[in-house]
Design a protein around this nucleic acid. Structure first.
Lengths: 138, 138
DNA sequence: CTGAACTAGTTCAATAATGAACTAAGTCGT
DNA sequence: ACGACTTAGTTCATTATTGAACTAGTTCAG
């Protein structure tokens, strides 16, 4: 059976959108937008805007917007990087970490509702396969 | 090992965006936008705007926009549904089918480059798992 | 019948996303 | 230590997306 790109895309899109929609009320009450949420979860691993844009594969102009908003809400702050004055090191505030964790928990609950449909072994498989596929082109 | 929602989302996003980016030149030369492409591939299975909006999980206002553009380009046409005069049955033109197939081929080539990293059995697994996860909430 | 409630699709005004141009800082020749 | 090139980040003008209001057709209870 051939694996059809468009089908996989649609499935992925449905999965992610479905989970997101189910949690949007929760995220809204935490005061965080969908795109901002992904910045919140990645910023510790990739603490500079350019790095975030690269890992999350979103335009850096968009990262600017999300970071500005997150800073305005008090979820993170910019620090000048002593080693390279062009760079803004992004640091989560305590509130930012709390919101990230609560949002992650809400998403996980909904996602687990779906993951419950498949076996634990399948979950590990899925992660392994996606890790391989999503790696940058060689 | 816990499966982290945000991680899966990021992986998915990277995979799909990466494949799309690699093909954007091809799609552009075929005269079709990314979102429009998914409408093109789904319209045979879901020939009405409202149905498309539901399966693709995009707002119906957006479907309106994409369909308008695809019709303007001569890739599909609207027919009034005899059974329900409110409905627009969408039909691909010969050119629309040709473009869909060529776009699908381009995407598949790029996607296969990535799928080549995993075994055929894993591909089937992936599809099976996503089918289960992406089904509408019970 | 009638009209209230519903559904398909569109339009439009408002919002969100982003390419391109820009500023500032860093690096590397020579 | 200079100029040419590269990189980080922002800004802004433009385009893309979409919620909400709307039109038109359908359904169905009374």
């Amino acid at each position: 059976m051939p694996v059809d790109v468009a089908e996989l895309w649609t499935l992925n899109h449905r999965l992610l959108t479905g989970v997101m929609n189910a949690c949007s009320a929760e995220l809204t009450s935490l005061g965080v937008e969908t795109k901002e949420f992904f910045v919140l979860t990645e910023v510790t691993a990739s603490p500079y805007p350019a790095e975030l844009a690269a890992t999350l594969m979103i335009p850096k102009a968009s990262v600017s917007v999300y970071v500005r908003s997150l800073v305005a809400k008090g979820f993170m702050r910019r620090e000048i990087d002593d080693a390279d004055l062009r760079r803004h090191r992004l640091v989560l505030t305590a509130e930012g970490e709390a919101v990230r964790d609560r949002a992650l928990a809400a998403l996980s609950t909904e996602f687990d509702r779906r993951l419950a449909r498949i076996t634990p072994r399948d979950r590990t498989e899925l992660r392994r396969i996606l890790l391989t596929l999503a790696a940058p082109a060689p």
